[in-house]
Every structure is written in structure tokens, then in C-alpha cells.
Design a protein around this nucleic acid. Structure first.
Lengths: 126, 126
DNA sequence: CGGGATCCAGTTCGATACTG
DNA sequence: CAGTATCGAACTGGATCCCG
């Protein structure tokens, strides 16, 4: 109860309702970014995405795609052919996201060695 | 066994070893981005971060900060005072990350309405 | 004040099997 | 080919207690 001294000297804006949270709901998962980047190259079928993203299960691919469609970043176009076929591509909104995502990708490219070095420095037993 | 036709017409580069994966390991979680953005404003103490990021538990704050330190994005500076005190701030590497992150933030800010609209359109029962 | 350790609930996710 | 359904394992994350 008795605080030694008040501890709220500087409020720190701390944008609670800032859109950062919302975008993290979009791409703050393991697969969304990879899918968007891949679809940025061209329209892809379900199976192509599945093979294109190593390690993803069909379950997660389905769920993630559904979320991206829901958020208006991706369109889903099914064809009633035999065998069936579904095309996925970015919407215009999705393509605009590609821009800042590419910046992030470029950063990752540029600094991957720095990060690896930092990790090894930290993990090194010596 | 008898596939109706081979299904590997176009390889799809599919950068498996691309750095996108690595950056997702960094910021592809719920809190890292928020912490980095917050530390982008100024150095903060543990408690300030805790209060600044609504909803985070001290456990996750500790774990996330530890990971950020490990990856070389954040420095941890403890002082042996009474009561103890620990400052966290971005490293130079962390500050460079701030740039593409701001771009992403700007995108989120600019398109939040689009996303909300898309969601409501999709979720609307009618 | 700034954590570490433990316990526990909720969620995520992959493997598998099945459908149209 | 493109999913859906189910299950169990793994991880996440919060609450609580304790220590320097």
C-alpha cells in the first residue's frame, strides 16, 4: 500500500489505441507475411502456396488465407473445374501493404548478419 | 498414386532461406514491436515499459526484453541502487529497425478503416 | 523495484483421416 | 486439388509467490 514514492513521474504516451496493435493482429503471426510476400510476385494456387512456404501445414495455410481474405488483403477465386482449383491473389489493399513489408524485408536482409552475430555473442558459453 | 497430371509446372522461387523468416522470429510475436516502438521514444525503465504497454504481464515483458537483448536490438543497464533500477534502450541496430517499423505503422494508420470495413463486410450476417 | 520460478488455463498448431 | 474435422502435443501467457 505505502509506496516509497509515487512512481508515475512521466506518463509515457503509450498509444494504447494506436493502430500498431491492429496490424500486429494482421501480420503478427508466423505465416501471414510470408503469404503476402509470395502473393506479391503473382497469383498462386493453394497447392503452390503450400509448396512455396516450407513448413506450413495445410491447416495453417487454410486458416491464414481465410483471415487474409477476411481482412481484405487477399482475394480467393475458386473454379468449378475437375480437379478443382482455387486462385489466391493480393487485393489492391494487399499490394499497398507490400510496400512497408518490403522495407522490413530489406532491413532483415541488411542486418541478418548483425543479428546472428549478436545472438552468438550472447549465447557463446565463453 | 496415379496423379491426373504432374503439378509442378512453375517452381515458385519460394525463398526458403530468405531472411523474412528470421525477422518474423524477432518481431512476429505479440509484444516485441510495441516495445521497440516505445523504446524508440526514449530510454525506459522496466516499470515504465510495464505501464506503457497495456495488457502485458511482467513475465512476458521480461521474456520479450531478454529476447530483444539477445538479438542485439535492446540494451539492458542495471543500476545497483536502492531500490534497484534497470534501464532499457534501443541499440543502434534497434534504431535502424525503427525505420521500417514506422513505415508499417504508417500503413496501419492509413488503412485501418479499410481493414475494418473489409472485416465488417465479411462478418456481416446479411 | 526488477525480476526469477512455478503452476496452470487457454490457445495454437501439426499429423492424420476424410470429403467433394 | 482443395479443403474440413478431430485429436493430442506444444507453446503462450497470466497469476502468484519469492528473492536480491
Amino acid at each position: 500500500m505505502s509506496a516509497t514514492h509515487i512512481d508515475v513521474p512521466m506518463p509515457v504516451p503509450a498509444d494504447h489505441d494506436c493502430p500498431t496493435r491492429e496490424i500486429l493482429d494482421l501480420i503478427g503471426d508466423k505465416w501471414s507475411v510470408l503469404i503476402v510476400v509470395l502473393l506479391g510476385k503473382r497469383t498462386l494456387r493453394f497447392g503452390e502456396l503450400h509448396r512455396g512456404i516450407e513448413g506450413i501445414s495445410q491447416r495453417m495455410l487454410t486458416l491464414t488465407l481465410r483471415a487474409l481474405v477476411r481482412d481484405g488483403l487477399v482475394t480467393r477465386t475458386p473454379y468449378t473445374t475437375v480437379p478443382p482449383r482455387v486462385d489466391y491473389s493480393l487485393t489492391e489493399l494487399g499490394r499497398t501493404l507490400l510496400v512497408p513489408l518490403s522495407a522490413l524485408d530489406a532491413w532483415a536482409h541488411a542486418h541478418r548478419d548483425d543479428i546472428r552475430a549478436a545472438r552468438e555473442r550472447h549465447d557463446s558459453p565463453g
